[in-house]
Design a protein around this nucleic acid. Sequence first.
RNA 1: UGUCUCAUGGUGUAAUGGUAGCACUGCAGUUUUUGGUACUGCCUGUCAAGGUUCGAAUCCUUGUGAGACAACCA
Length: 563
Amino acid sequence: MTDKKDNQETPKSLNFIEQMVEKDIQEGRNNGRIQTRFPPEPNGYLHIGHAKAICMDFGIAEKYNGTCNLRFDDTNPSKEEVEYVDAIQEDIQWLGYKWDKICFTSEYFQQLWDLAVQFIKDGKAYIDEQSSDEMAKQKGTPTEAGTASPFRSRPMEESLKLFEKMNTGEIPEGAMVLRAKIDMAASNMHFRDPIMYRVVNHPHHRTGTTWKAYPMYDFAHGQSDYFEGVTHSLCTLEFEVHRPLYNWYIDQFANSDYRPYQTEFNRLNITYTVMSKRKMLQLVQEGLVTGWDDPRMPTIGGLRRRGYTPASIHSFIDKIGYTKYEALNDVSLLESSIREDLNEKATRVSAVIDPIKLILTNYPEDQVEMMEAVNNPGDETAGKHEIPFTKELYIERNDFMEDAPKKFFRMTIDKEVRLKSAYIIKCTGCKKDEAGNITEVYAEYDPQTKSGMPESNRKVKGTIHWVSVEHSLPAEVRIYDRLFNVENPSEEKETDFRDLLNPDSLIVNTAARVEPWLKNAKHMENFQFQRTGYFNIDPDSTADKLVFNKTVGLKDSWTKKNS
RNA sequence: UGUCUCAUGGUGUAAUGGUAGCACUGCAGUUUUUGGUACUGCCUGUCAAGGUUCGAAUCCUUGUGAGACAACCA
């Protein structure tokens, strides 16, 4: 495990954005200054797709000695809430990033307003009183030019007066908008007199009722970048068509030698994973999940509670890269990232999920032996822990088979198997109820084969885990599978996505037992158990419930979960 | 029948005119006190057709396919 680090690492090739940034620095664009921003709208929780953007925005600043602001793009008060503002900050911090400054687009409302007024005075904007339907009709289609609004040549003074009114409350929502006067025949639809301002009567989570007229994304984003001093405005591919407008707005007023540049990269898509905020909100509101941080959700909080570490998310993002190709990443790449990280760091513990009683017929009735188990087989410095061993144990139901096929390495009658960290035992039989279900398994232990004794080196094909019946604790176990059962949910756009929910995404199993010392191991964040998978204690958890996570980990994994 | 963008193994991503490599997945094997881990090997690729060139994944042309854009969302 240590020589892994000794391997000389081949220098990682730069992605296209890093290459661009290095070129910009060399050529002295914006005096070689690097400033980025992460601009979420506070209308939902951050998900793994945002993590990709976060790693880019903060990562570029970190790598090239620049700065990165966290800017809340809060220009639509009807959808935004303080709850989201707080959650977003927590998630970014959990990922390990620090913003240079925290800001809000709403802080620039006055500047944007003044700028809009200037646009009107310059004859570059006008108040349109048409309905949105009328405006949509005259906008044309991507293949046909649009036609001019009857208000397009409205005198500047009139527009100015009406614009003031838009912000006093006397104009109802939808009655008028401020539009930029550009080109109704432009091949880029965004140039056909885009809306700059509209009326929203919903109070804003920060500015209250101070404003009634709110800027649209296109009029706000580039300007905010400019006001802040952003040099590299990085966003996802769907904003590509907006870039000419982004530049056009800036061209209208910027007169310094500085200007921000927008660059787009591909957004994250993962198989079996829905990342639409709208749909996630619906899952939460309809109670189909327990909340935004339900472990089945692709949110940062959900992944955290499912046992993902910040390091695993970083390594995942690192592996998928940034291009302009709209990729669909296999979820196994994400899963391998957490396995890799936990395998290295996680402490191994024992737990039996689907227990069946194993009785060692020749073991003294009241004897308790403390068995020593390593915490991490790949890391000696991780230490050891003790597990109580008794005559009556629980083993996994599927670790025993009465009529076993040849390739079955675990427990079967007349065959030897090793109890991990304890003795080699030989199965002698089992007991069944009337229905034929196995209720108990019997075996004899070999006292000479306790772990550490010379005899224990005997070759035995199988090794199984166990817990002492007397010392075990019952636990609520939740088994998580994928929330969706279609490979690419985005292909099912027309379907109600709820039809795509996997009915097995959450299975509660109350029969599980865990060994007692787990209860006292609150200081440990991560646990791993090898054949069954990986354990993780939810850092938010206070209860002793366990969550079984089927997707993460080798085949299965566990997360301790709060009630 | 518009504008813009993209196309490399099953998936994702490198190679920036000079040996098509890496990771994930899958399949084999070695080691193993869990069938895990670790290590080794294997499978599979430049969308197509032309052109430029000593040499093309890379440059040019045409075609094909995919995506984005017609919200008073961001």
